[in-house]
Each structure stands twice: as structure tokens, then as C-alpha cells.
Design a protein around this nucleic acid. Structure first.
Length: 490
RNA sequence: GGCGACGUAGCCAAGUGGUAAGGCGGAGGUCUGCAAAACCUCUAUUCAGCGGUUCGAAUCCGCUCGUCGCCUCCA
């Protein structure tokens, strides 16, 4: 079995062969920190995090960098509107990024470089391009000479002449040699932050930062570079031109781009006002549901954001959580080790999961396998209360093995902790959702369950139901099983 | 105008040549004191439409219709 990744550069699925296995270098174009990121940005972070987690699951040693664009027009404009210092604003939303990303189960990158910390690297890169005749200075600006780079357009499948036709170019706006040329360095304007450079005070163009930071931290050639599909052109095309123009060799081996989150089939955008910021979404729905919804279609396909989608995701997650928690609760603290049969059954599920994910990170197929495993687990659970001791013991082994394998499938999807740890902070002393309720709270609940059982055997159903209802009001839900009553936290 | 993606059940969504995964929702049933959870059965003779290739197509080719995206800051 081999992992296949769809490479935007070739428009085909390719066998994944990193440059120096098992090492994998990955770079994702991160947020411009001038506002909360929206649900579309969230999809990119979640998708890339899932890719990263799966590569780790597959045994790769991943080194991952994701930048913060902490200086650009949007930040300068927002800063002016708010009367807040641009660097203060950027820091504030950088902090929010970490907070929201963590909520979504997105792991921190190994490196989170900031553009403003890499100005010297960018200047050096621009100088290299200048020396090679690929860049030229005009006034205090520096531009990339697009037509001097032979393969410009290769990544996005365009040729420079087509680009000119459709281009809405205001040639008068600047001093470019060619309308297609783009800015590497922008001369400072009054009131804007600026850095000293060989071309005078100014600030970097947008594209140059990713080239500089990717090469500085991960090397001149990296394995995977990712972003939303709208970054293919011009951002990634320009990054490629800058990096390969400077070094003369391949910049990225696999270009990976995720599809949009749409709203009524249209791309979310600021101008349409049809976007939701992540903090708004997380106020309404659990992070597990949001993440599940974001990976419940293939990452390259568009996904429509709606209340229905989030509710369905919540229901789907509830089924998984219910199955695993019920099984683990019934197993108690002395979960049996799997025998050969159970081991094979679990391995088969894991293989099916891996096959799905190996096909260009097909999370939906992987999720399908999880649900099939859930169904098998629920069925096996009934056997646990069998009167025949051997049958019950076998069922316990099966349930233990399947519950464990479900956890190991949820982990690379970034869902395991979100589904099973959420609420534990509120639960306080609830030692874990799986096992012996050794804490005091658990003992109290067990006592109430015992009282309810006594009421039931005395046919005092009003009292029994009162106990159940009051516990439910505290999000403690009771389940009656042939072997006894268990409780779960909702 | 150039380039590209998509159209599968009430909804979401896999499947890219061998006879339609999975989830949500819905209907009926089993279990239960009643619930909850779970389980069982049913819910697409068919994959936008029309042609073609093939023993065989949702899957390949052509055309048509529809939706969306990139070409400008954008995940």
C-alpha cells in the first residue's frame, strides 16, 4: 500500500515519495492576522492538520511550518480604522489564532514563523533575484520580471499571454516593465511601517515572505506546500517563481490545495458578507462537530456550510461517542486483552481505514470505516451480557479491541480528543470516560443508581424516574443494560 | 474571453470499467415498567440529459443543460 497525493502541479494523484524519508517537510500558508479567521480558513487549518496527523500515523517524521502574515495592506488598513497599533493588532489576532486552532484540535506547528521576523531573509532573496536578472528596482519598489522566468504559469496551468488578455491591469498605477510583474518590495508610504533595505525604506510584498520562510526553515526544496485553492494563482505561482528563480532547483514536490467552504454554493467572501468567523461558529457548535463537518467531504471538493450540516455532524459524532463510551463503561476498568480473532478483526478495520486515507486523504471513506466498526461494536456489545461465560468473555475481548481501534482511527483525524475529552474540564474529577468511577462523584452517582434500582424493584417508578430525570438535568444520562445500569455524561 | 471543478436517494457523501459504502432524516419492529441507547427490516432497478466505445459504464469518449471557482486581496 502506498500513499497517494493529488499534486496540483501535475493535476494527478502521485505516489508520495518524500525527498528524505522518513522525514517530511511541510509548509502551509497561514493566516493574515487582522481579524478572527473564518470557517473557510478553518477548513484549511483542519485539513492540513489532518494531513500532518495522518503522515505521522503512517510513520513519517514530519517537520511542519505555518507562517503568520503580520504585515500587509489589510493589517495596515484595519489598524488605521481601529486606531490600534498594527503590531498590537497582529499580536492580538495571532493569540486568537492559537486559541481557536487549539479548540479545533489543530496541533501547533513545529515552527510558526512571522513575516516581520524574516525581513533580512526576504531582502537577501530579492537581491539574489536581482543578481540573476529576475528582479528590477523602480523608485523604491522592486518587481519580479515574470517573462524572464521560463516556466511561469506552470503550476496554475496558464501561459503568460492568456494572462494578459483577461487581466484587469491598470498600467498607469505603477512603474512595472510588464503588467504581469509583481511586487517583491514596496517603497514605504507616509504613516506606514517600514524597514530599511538596499532600495530604501519599505516593506515586503506578500509572496516573498513564504518563499523566504519556507526555504529558511525547511530547506530549498520541501515535500508539501499547501493552502486554499485560491492561492494557486497568483500566490503559489509567484512563490515558485521567486524560489526556483533564485535557487535554480525545485521548490516544492507536492502542491496540495483544499476546496472552499461555500454558503448556498457560493464562496464565502467579505464582499458578499456570507462568511462566519470561527469564534461565531464555535459559540454555536461543539468543536468536534465543526471539525467533523469540515472533513466529512473530500478536502478538494467544495463544502457547503449550513446549520443542517453542523447538526448532522453532531448527530454522527454522538453515535460514535455513544458506542465507544457505552462499551468502555460496560467493560469497566479491567478491559481484556484481545485474542487472535479480535486482533485480526481490529487490524482489518484499521487496514480499511488506511486504504481510504492513503487515497489522497479520503476522510469520508475513512469515516465510513469508522461507522462500520461502530456498528460491529454495538452488535458485539449485546454478547457481553450473554449467560454463557465463554461467549460473554469473547464479546468483551471484541468490544475492547474495537473500541481501541476506533480511538486509533479518530486520532489521525484529530477527532479523538475532541470527542472524548470535551467536557472533562467541566466534569472536574471524572477520572476518565472509560473506566472505573473511582472518584467521589462517580460513587455518588452509583449510589443514586442503586437507589433507583431499589425503587424499581419496589415498583416505585415515579421515584425511579425522578432520579433519572434529575440526573439527566445534570447531563448524567442513564442506560439500562441486562448486566446493570451505567451512566454517561452528555 | 482563457483555464478549471462539480452535478449520485428527502439531505450530506463515498464509489472512476464488473453490477450503488457510510452518516443524517423518515417508516415499522425487538428490547424496556416507561424511557434512553442498541439491534433488525424498509427508505436510489439507478447515478443531470442525450448519444457513443465495451461482453459489461455512475465510472471511458463526445455533445447538451445546470451550478460554482480562478484569471484582482482572498483558505
Amino acid at each position: 500500500m502506498s500513499l497517494k497525493i493529488y499534486n496540483t502541479a501535475t493535476r494527478t494523484k502521485e505516489d508520495f515519495a518524500p525527498l528524505h524519508p522518513p522525514a517530511v517537510t511541510m509548509y502551509n500558508c497561514g493566516p493574515t492576522v487582522y481579524d478572527y479567521f473564518h470557517i473557510g480558513n478553518a477548513r484549511n487549518f483542519v485539513v492540513v492538520d489532518t494531513v500532518r496527523r495522518y503522515l505521522i500515523f503512517r510513520g513519517y517524521d514530519v517537520r511542519f511550518a505555518q507562517n503568520f502574515t503580520d504585515i500587509d495592506d489589510k493589517i495596515i488598513n484595519r489598524s488605521a480604522e481601529r486606531g490600534e497599533a498594527w503590531d498590537h493588532l497582529a499580536q492580538r489576532f495571532t493569540d486568537y489564532y492559537f486559541q481557536m486552532a487549539e479548540a479545533l484540535g489543530v496541533m501547533r506547528a513545529d515552527i510558526h514563523p512571522k513575516a516581520t521576523d524574516h525581513i533580512p531573509h526576504m531582502i537577501a532573496l530579492v537581491q539574489q533575484l536581482e543578481a540573476k536578472g529576475l528582479a528590477y528596482a523602480r523608485g523604491g519598489d522592486v518587481y519580479y520580471r515574470v517573462r524572464a522566468f521560463d516556466s511561469y504559469g506552470k503550476l496554475s496551468g496558464r501561459n503568460v499571454d492568456d494572462l494578459l488578455e483577461g487581466a484587469r491591469v491598470d498600467v498607469t498605477a505603477d512603474q512595472k516593465e510588464d503588467p504581469l510583474d509583481f511586487a517583491l518590495w514596496k517603497a514605504t508610504k507616509p504613516g506606514e511601517p517600514s524597514w530599511d533595505s538596499p532600495w530604501g525604506p519599505g516593506r515586503p510584498g506578500w509572496h516573498i515572505e513564504c518563499s523566504a520562510m519556507s526555504m529558511h526553515h525547511l530547506g530549498e526544496t520541501i515535500d508539501i506546500h499547501s493552502g486554499g485553492i485560491d492561492l494557486v494563482f497568483p500566490h503559489h505561482e509567484n512563490e515558485r517563481a521567486q524560489s526556483e528563480g533564485a535557487t535554480g532547483h525545485e521548490f516544492v514536490r507536492y502542491w496540495l490545495h483544499n476546496g472552499f467552504v461555500t454558503r448556498d454554493a457560493e464562496k464565502m467572501s467579505k464582499s458578499l458578507g456570507n462568511f462566519f468567523t470561527i469564534n461565531e461558529v464555535l459559540e454555536k457548535y461543539p468543536a468536534a462537530s465543526v471539525r467533523f463537518a469540515l472533513i466529512s467531504a473530500h478536502y478538494r471538493h467544495p463544502i457547503d456550510y449550513s446549520e443542517t450540516a453542523l447538526k448532522e455532524a453532531s448527530a454522527a459524532i454522538a453515535r460514535i461517542r455513544e458506542a465507544v463510551q457505552t462499551a468502555e463503561k460496560l467493560l469497566g476498568s479491567n478491559s481484556p486483552a484481545p485474542g487472535t480473532t479480535e486482533k485480526q478483526q481490529a487490524d482489518a478495520a484499521l487496514d480499511a481505514f488506511t486504504t481510504g486515507m492513503d487515497d489522497d486523504f479520503n476522510t469520508q471513506r475513512a469515516i465510513g470505516v469508522i461507522f462500520e466498526t461502530v456498528a460491529t461494536l454495538n452488535e458485539a456489545r449485546k454478547g457481553m451480557s450473554s449467560g454463557a461465560p465463554e461467549e460473554a468473555a469473547a464479546a468483551r475481548r471484541t468490544c475492547a479491541a474495537l473500541a481501541a481501534v476506533i480511538h486509533s482511527m479518530l486520532e489521525p483525524l484529530g477527532l479523538d480528543a475532541l470527542i472524548f475529552n470535551a467536557g472533562n474540564e467541566a466534569a472536574g474529577t471524572d477520572a476518565n470516560a472509560t473506566g472505573g468511577d473511582t472518584d467521589q462523584m462517580g460513587k455518588l452517582i452509583d449510589l443514586l443508581i442503586e437507589a433507583r434500582a431499589m425503587a424499581k424493584s419496589a415498583k416505585q417508578f415515579a421515584l425511579a424516574d425522578h432520579i433519572r430525570d434529575q440526573l439527566a438535568a445534570m447531563n448524567i444520562r442513564l442506560q439500562d443494560h441486562p448486566t446493570g445500569t451505567i451512566w454517561l455524561r452528555d
